[in-house]
């Protein structure tokens, strides 16, 4: 088991390092180096050279990459050349907003998606199951940003039930501001979770041990919610990790549409400014969070399933 956990963490580290190197290489492979792109066409050679030196771009590429990782490990993500502030500090100040949004999105999609899937699986091919199935597919297919825009238009601008912009003050205010963005990022995952739970529930219901449990007279309630759901929930746990990762990326739209502070809003502004250190820092942090989330869900999944736990 321990070996598995260590292996999984090792793989995660390799992936993060590869991803960042790839990104770094890409940035340097394009014609026109970051300094020129940042300063625009009218920059003087002196200015460019100065910026090169400040960003360490005058050294050979492998040295740059290694020193970049060295700095990252010591918590230094570079300096934002526009605001003259450390990138790490800027990112840390907005990370909580994004994490809260992702947490809220996952929480409500779990709270609705799992019961919906269980409910459908226990009444296969009923009209409720069919409606739930169509809704799930629709939720998955609809792009989150269009959902967000429609929600903004209907609930905030037209009906005025929810605030249009900002992160909110105080607990109640923050919660109030969280509703529509969380709705936006979570809706697709309601569909995913409902489908996955329904499918795995149906699969488990058809397994021999369910008939065995029924033959021993266990009550329906125990069979469904303890004997079946405990197995059927496992794929949902795995998918939650991926869900968190995907949401980290999906929050960009929600944060921009609802003008919320967060990683998405940060990178949006950074891209508009062509602010490379900030872009690199944000991508690095989100990639890391993404990989950590998927790795954790794999490990949790292994812990929950005694069959896998044993084999490791």
């Amino acid at each position: 088991m321990l070996v598995y956990v260590l292996k999984r963490i090792g793989l995660a580290l390799v992936i993060i390092i590869l991803a960042v190197t790839l990104l770094y290489l890409m940035i340097h492979a394009v014609p026109g180096d970051p300094a020129t792109v940042m300063l625009g066409p009218r920059a003087t050679p002196e200015l460019i050279a100065q910026l090169h030196q400040r960003m360490g771009l005058d050294k050979p590429l492998p040295v740059q990459i290694i020193s970049f990782f060295g700095r990252v490990l010591s918590g230094d993500l570079g300096t934002d050349v526009f605001q003259e502030k450390p990138v790490a500090g800027i990112i840390i100040s907005v990370v909580p907003y994004t994490l809260i949004l992702v947490g809220a999105g996952i929480a409500w999609s779990l709270a609705l998606g799992i019961p919906l899937g269980v409910f459908s699986a226990l009444r296969p091919d009923s009209w409720i199951d069919k409606v739930a199935g169509i809704l799930s597919v629709a939720f998955i297919a609809m792009p989150a940003f269009v959902v967000g825009l429609y929600a903004l238009l209907l609930f905030a601008v037209t009906l005025g039930w929810f605030p249009v912009i900002g992160g909110g003050e105080g607990f109640a205010g923050q919660l109030h501001h969280l509703v529509l963005p969380a709705f936006t990022v979570g809706l697709g995952w309601v569909g995913y979770l409902a489908r996955i739970v329904r499918a795995s529930m149906l699969e488990v219901l058809a397994e021999n041990h369910v008939r065995h449990a029924r033959a021993h007279g266990l009550p329906q309630r125990v069979v469904h919610y303890q004997y079946v759901l405990r197995i059927a929930i496992l794929p949902a746990v795995t998918i939650v990790g991926i869900g968190i990762g995907a949401m980290l990326s999906g929050v960009v739209f929600a944060e921009i549409i609802f003008a919320r502070p967060g990683l998405g809003k940060l990178i949006f502004v950074a891209v508009q400014q062509r602010n490379f250190p900030l872009i690199m820092g944000t991508v690095l942090v989100t990639t890391t969070l993404f990989v950590v989330a998927t790795t954790l869900s794999d490990i949790v999944n292994a812990l929950l399933d005694p069959r896998i736990r044993e084999r490791l």
Partner: peptide, 23 residues
């Protein structure tokens, strides 16, 4: 497999924004 995993580990929108900035 490692390549696939690595490409998949980029948060899609963030990755897209970084590339847009470049080219």
């Amino acid at each position: 497999l490692l390549l696939f995993d690595t490409l998949r580990s980029f948060p899609v929108v963030m990755f897209a924004l970084a590339v847009v900035t470049l080219i």
